[in-house]
Structures are given as structure tokens and as C-alpha cells.
């Protein structure tokens, strides 16, 4: 039963072109996509069925009097379908909650790559902790984009010396990443459609988001929470590299940073 359902669902995967989903480049994306497509087909089916009933009911006439209700008719036409809907929606919710719990109830693995994401009007900045694996202190008062310190890293903190700040997010494929989302000014929405993740960055809060990119390529990072007049062009690239390419990139950036 479950096997055949899987088979059916995988057949519907090719339907991605119909639904115009972007490619999925993350580990959890496959399950999410499958659940999404399952939902979409179910509601498409229900919508079609309801409209067929609507049209049939209007077009095929019968005695008006036959429409009057009795208890058995109410049960048949109202409560039985309702019971069915309750089961259907409960099943979908249960499936969805399992996925939600998988991605949100627990934090990232201890081995996950740490990156801090900071949103500000109207750019994303990505900070890697560097060799010491610790992020340096940031101080809002020290913010100075003109002097190359857009995040306000405190020069007095030794942890901050080797921090890498990048305007693109570069990640190795196959390794989990633990993002710490922050916002400096207003609420921003961190969204990567190809990674099937979205989470608002809220000023005053640090919010963790973790996922595993699997597929090398260049993807779009968008802002999905209205943040001001430049909202539409607040974006960045996510470059997923192979593990060795990433190591190389990190090395190059770090040597550039220290020299």
C-alpha cells in the first residue's frame, strides 16, 4: 500500500513542470516536495469533484421536492463527507507535522557548518567564524559599511579578527549548515526557494535554521518580508560547491583576509 503510494507519488514528480516548482537542491526538499505535490493533487481533485457536483446539480434537473431533507440524507450528504474530510485533513496534518518536527523541533548536528546571516536594508551579509570557530562580538554602534565593517564587528574582540564576511553564501554540498539569522533594522525574510527554506530574520532575535544542500549550483536568496523600498532587489547568491571546492574557497578567502 505504502509502496504503491510512493510509486504513484514519484510518477507525479514529473509533474513538477506543471506546478512550476524550481529544482530542489536540499536534503529535506524531496520529502517536502512530495508532500506538497500530494497536497496539490488532492486539492485539485477535490476542487474538480466539487465543481463537477456543482455543475451536475445545476444542469441535471429533478423534482424540487426531492431536495428536502431527512435525517438519513443529512447524514449521507453532510456528516459522512465531513468525517471523510476530517480524516483526510488529519492525515495530511500528521504527515506535515512529522516533516515540520524533523526540520524545526531539533537543532543542527554538532558537526554542522556555522554561518551567520545578517539582513539589513537592502542586503544580506554572511559571516563565517574563521579558524577559531567562534564569531566575534558585534556592536550596533560600530556599524560602518563605508569602512568595510557592515556588521559592526568589534575590533577589540580577538574572535572577530578571522571572521569572514561575504556577500554571497557559499556552502559545501552534502554538509549540514546551521544558519543564525539576524536582522539589523527591520524584519527581513530569508528565503531560498531551491533549498525549500524560509525564515524571517527578526531584529533583536537570533533564529537558527538548518538544512543540507545536496546539489552544487548557484541559487537565489531572496527577501520575502516587505522591508522597504529596496525590498525587491534585496537578494544574494547561494553557491553550493563540492566539498573540496568549498575548502579551497574558504582557504582563499581566509588568506586574503589575513594578508
Amino acid at each position: 500500500m505504502h509502496r504503491s503510494l510512493d510509486l504513484l507519488l514519484s510518477a507525479l514528480f514529473n509533474a513538477r513542470d506543471i506546478w512550476r516548482l524550481p529544482v530542489d537542491g536540499s536534503l529535506h526538499g524531496a520529502l517536502l516536495d512530495r508532500h506538497l505535490l500530494l497536497n496539490l493533487w488532492i486539492i485539485l481533485g477535490l476542487a474538480a469533484l466539487a465543481h463537477l457536483l456543482l455543475l451536475a446539480g445545476v444542469l441535471f434537473a429533478r423534482d424540487r421536492r426531492a431536495g428536502t431533507e431527512s435525517i438519513s440524507r443529512t447524514v449521507r450528504l453532510e456528516y459522512l463527507p465531513l468525517a471523510f474530510f476530517t480524516l483526510l485533513f488529519s492525515w495530511l496534518t500528521l504527515r506535515a507535522e512529522r516533516l515540520w518536527a524533523l526540520s524545526r523541533y531539533t537543532g543542527a548536528e554538532p558537526t554542522a557548518l556555522q554561518v551567520e546571516v545578517t539582513g539589513m536594508q537592502f542586503a544580506w551579509y554572511f559571516r563565517y567564524p574563521g579558524q577559531d570557530a567562534t564569531f566575534g562580538r558585534v556592536e550596533p554602534a560600530l556599524l560602518d559599511p563605508g569602512a568595510g565593517n557592515p556588521l559592526g564587528i568589534d575590533p577589540a574582540d580577538s574572535h572577530g579578527k578571522d571572521d569572514l564576511v561575504s556577500s554571497e553564501l557559499v556552502l559545501p554540498a552534502g554538509r549540514e549548515v546551521d544558519l543564525r539569522l539576524r536582522a539589523l533594522d527591520v524584519i527581513h525574510g530569508f528565503a531560498v526557494p531551491e533549498m525549500r527554506v524560509k525564515q524571517n530574520a527578526v531584529p533583536g532575535q537570533t533564529i537558527h535554521l538548518h538544512f543540507t544542500p545536496t546539489r552544487p549550483g548557484t541559487y537565489a536568496i531572496l527577501c520575502t518580508q516587505l522591508c522597504g523600498l529596496g525590498h525587491y532587489r534585496m537578494n544574494a547568491n547561494l553557491r553550493v560547491l563540492s566539498a573540496s571546492d568549498f575548502e579551497h574557497w574558504l582557504h582563499v578567502r581566509e588568506s586574503r583576509g589575513t594578508t
Binding site: 506538497l36 476542487a47 516533516l99 524545526r104 520575502t224 518580508q225
Partner: peptide, 17 residues
């Protein structure tokens, strides 16, 4: 009918906004 889809947080994580 698209309401129940958006009511599932994991799908809303993709579809929100």
C-alpha cells in the same frame, strides 16, 4: 482548498509570502 496547504507549517515554509 489552498487554505489547508498553507496551514501546514512545513509547506508554508516554502509558500509563505
Amino acid at each position: 482548498l489552498s487554505g489547508p496547504i498553507l496551514a501546514q507549517p512545513i509547506l508554508d515554509q516554502y509558500l509563505h509570502n
